[in-house]
Amino acid sequence: MESLFSRLFKYRSSDKRVQQENFLTEIFAFLLKNPALVAAFLNECGVAIQGQPENIKIDTQQSFSTYPERIQPDIFVRFFVDNQKWLVFIENKVGAREGENQLDRYLGYLSKEVNKDTNCALLYLTRYYDPKLVDPPLGVIFKPIRWGQVYSILAKFEDNVFVSQARLFMEENNLSLSRDFSTNEITAMMHWNTVRTMMDNSLEEAQERLKQITGIKRLYQEDVGDYLYIAGKSLAIEIGYYLEDIAKEATDEDFPYVGSAIVVYPEHRNREQITSAFMEFEKKGRNWKLRGDPKDKNDEIWVEKLLLLKEFMKSKDHISSIQQWFLKEILPDIEEFLKDNPYSLN
């Protein structure tokens, strides 16, 4: 049976992609309004609150001032335990990557709250293992957690119909993350080195050309979820393999996408101008598609050009076919965009 949340997700606007990440944030924030669930969640994540939370206030995407900038954690939770104040930030990353110094800025704000006699914690919630080298200020708790842990914690509250539907939705979207190896997973593990080598071979020339175009000597590699090479930070150029469910159609579930994206994050000082440039770039008719919500100032916006891997499997030499597609169809477009829009990639 399809979950309530999957049915709701089908009603997303057809003219923009509703991010799974934001949808999950709203679901989880709703569930956290249960005091017993909040207590169980925090304690099992390593934030020992030693009591039942009271006067709980939960909201999503609320802005906090860190003059001269502002921060906007996905979820914030305020409550009291035995007259002690608590403030917890939860940052949810399912598909997107961390913004520039995002966690450090959150920790900086929370350190000031600690000085006001508030107990503070920052929870970094991800689909996959994503270690972070952060040095939390004195008195601030930092804990990386995964959606698989949340799935297990919610099992204790499955009598609640909303919790049971949330867990079903997590199963449907590969967020429950089984703790048992299947035959398919063992087979994939045995072939992973070969697959990774083939992906790297297909991207080798494209990487070098991207370095020349951007002037960046070393690309960042993203191999959590997707398999990408990235130039830039708050304005980023991605090339590689999209292994997650980015823009997938139901009939194409078993094939990853190959391609590129030019992404602008909310913290870029020229975000509005770059977003306008994306709109014009899409109109050129070269199969670059605008994604995200340009009206949402807190949303990352990007243009992407993707092909299913199976399209390259029609050629005699899959690797060469992918190499040539990047060199002839992707990178010249990226070079043109950056020349027409010479904004900082940092």
Rank of each mutant, 00 (worst) to 15 (best):
R7I: 08
L8Y: 10
F9N: 04
Y11E: 13
S13P: 02
S14E: 08
V18T: 12
L24S: 15
L24Q: 13
L31V: 07
P35H: 13
A40M: 04
L42F: 03
C45F: 11
G46I: 03
V47L: 09
A48C: 09
I49P: 06
Q52A: 02
E54D: 14
E54G: 15
N55T: 01
S65V: 07
T66S: 03
T66W: 02
P68Y: 09
Q72E: 11
Q72H: 02
P73L: 08
F76G: 01
R78T: 08
F80M: 03
Q84V: 14
Q84F: 11
W86Y: 15
V94L: 09
G95Y: 08
G95K: 00
A96P: 01
G99R: 13
N101L: 12
R105F: 04
G108H: 08
E113F: 08
E113K: 14
V114W: 12
N115D: 11
Y124A: 08
T126Q: 02
K132D: 04
K132V: 09
D135K: 05
F142L: 03
K143I: 02
P144C: 03
I145F: 05
G148M: 07
Q149Y: 09
S152A: 04
I153R: 02
I153F: 02
L154I: 04
K156M: 13
F157D: 07
V161E: 07
A166H: 13
R167L: 06
E171T: 08
S176E: 12
S176M: 05
S176Q: 10
S182Q: 07
H191W: 14
T194M: 14
R196K: 14
T197H: 11
M199N: 15
N201H: 15
E204W: 09
E204D: 10
E208P: 12
K211P: 01
K211A: 05
I213G: 00
T214L: 05
T214F: 06
Q221G: 10
D223M: 08
L228V: 06
L228E: 06
Y229K: 12
L235S: 04
E238I: 00
G240I: 10
G240H: 12
Y241P: 10
E244C: 05
I246P: 00
A250P: 10
D252C: 11
F255T: 15
Y257W: 13
V263R: 02
Y265M: 09
R269F: 07
T275C: 14
M279A: 11
K284A: 15
N287R: 11
W288E: 11
R291P: 06
R291A: 13
G292K: 03
P294W: 01
W302Q: 00
F312M: 04
F312R: 08
S315W: 10
D317H: 09
H318F: 14
H318R: 15
I319T: 15
I322D: 09
Q324R: 04
K328F: 08
I330N: 05
F337W: 01
N341K: 05
N346L: 07
